[in-house]
Simulated scan of single mutants.
Amino acid sequence: YIRNSRSIGSSASVLERSRARTRYKGLQGFLTYNTGGVTTGVFFSGSPDLASQVRHRSFVMAAKTANNLVSGFRKCVDLCNDAAGLRGTYIPFEVEGTTVGFILPSFASHLMEHGDVFKATEAGLQLSSDLATPEARTEAVANVLAGLRDCGLVPGWRDELFPVATSFSAEPALLIERAAASLFGIKAYGVHINGWVRRQDGSRAMWVARRSRTKQTWPGMLDHIVAGGQPHGISPTENVVKECGEEAGVPPALAAAARPAGAVSYECVNTDGGLKRDVMFVYDLELPEGFAPEPQDGEVEEFFLWPVERVMQVVAEGGHYKPNCAIVIIDFLMRHGYVAPEEEGYLELLAGLRQGECS
């Protein structure tokens, strides 16, 4: 059993790629294994059932490691869903009698200064019924937002339009500037790409980006190889190819190999106090071992390749990754078997990845 001790601890999926070695003399030995760059060991001796003793102690240690990781992952999920129970803080934003967003009363007060565009109601705020078409609404709201931007009330202007709709497949009631999406509490969408590599030894690694330290949001934090908001007028898959080229220099033919892998959703309070109601379309992109992404548009400072086990540890520690990137990575880890159903909190973690309205 000792000579084939690579199987020790294999029931804990977070250690699937660990390498166990033993050094023994008589009935003594020392088992070591490594996961995520952390080496752990257990001394054993004196038992006639040596294999049983080693297996039990390594399983205990593996379980503790798994529980710590899952606990860390749960904290990441909770951070992205910190608006739970706060919906009442915001007032509904309606277009033609349909609620399409939620706005802080303080921001709504600035909008109501433009009475030809926004009207107060008993329930909240609505667009004027005089604005009868999506085009008219888009133009009128854009003019208001431009003025508020000049007053410093809409920071981070992007010159990118997001649709305002009740679901991804619904026709938009209007388009608004991306920087105002959370201020209006609309449903917003994006694409996140897990760029990973299958190494010659069978292990897996993931490309990590460090955001530019001059970015207005989450400067210097870790990120996906590619991620971006979902603008109006193109499909998510088309957006993946576009963003891959613009952010990481991934050729279109290679980017087109990205495979859709579902979505995650969350509802949190944005840094501007607005309500982020986001759905992120998730893609997995297996990249050749010889390919290296390169920063293109100034949004990324550097790229580096980490073993998946190290990515796991860093995500679980918290505070390193941009929050929504962390939960997309957790989704990748669960789908690829790095977190197993036997681990405590598995189902709660799985459900937490889609706490937001996923529609």
Rank of each mutant, 00 (worst) to 15 (best):
A120W: 15
V141R: 01
P251M: 00
P236R: 04
Q200A: 15
V339L: 05
E96I: 08
G229T: 13
A84N: 14
E267S: 06
Q126T: 15
C80P: 07
P341V: 05
P172E: 01
L287H: 05
V208G: 03
Y24S: 08
N81R: 06
M221Q: 15
S5H: 09
D278G: 13
G41D: 10
C244K: 02
I327G: 01
A292F: 11
V315I: 04
H320C: 06
A292Y: 12
H110I: 07
R17I: 08
D331W: 05
R213L: 13
F59Q: 12
V197A: 03
D223Y: 12
R158M: 14
E342K: 09
A173G: 10
E294T: 10
F44V: 06
G156S: 07
R21H: 13
P293R: 01
C76L: 15
F184M: 00
T138S: 01
P48T: 09
D284R: 13
T40Q: 13
E135G: 09
G262M: 01
S47C: 08
Y321A: 02
V141C: 01
A83W: 02
T217C: 09
L275M: 04
Q28W: 10
R21N: 11
P92T: 02
G229D: 11
V315E: 02
R23H: 13
L161R: 15
W306L: 14
N324R: 12
V315K: 00
T138E: 00
C358I: 12
P163D: 00
S5W: 10
Q296F: 06
F168Q: 07
S71F: 13
E94H: 04
N4Y: 12
A181P: 07
V14A: 13
G228V: 05
L79E: 15
R204Y: 06
L86R: 15
V141Y: 01
G220P: 04
F303N: 02
A316M: 02
L175T: 01
L145G: 00
A51P: 07
A51F: 08
Y1V: 11
P252V: 04
A173M: 12
G152D: 03
P252G: 04
K187R: 15
I193F: 00
L27N: 12
R149E: 07
M112Y: 15
R57F: 10
G36V: 02
R354D: 08
Y33I: 04
L161S: 09
T35G: 08
P105C: 09
L104Q: 13
A316E: 00
G97Q: 03
P92N: 01
R198G: 14
S7A: 09
R277A: 03
Q28D: 15
Q216L: 11
C244L: 04
Y338W: 08
V282K: 07
G352C: 03
S109K: 12
P48R: 14
E96Q: 14
T237M: 11
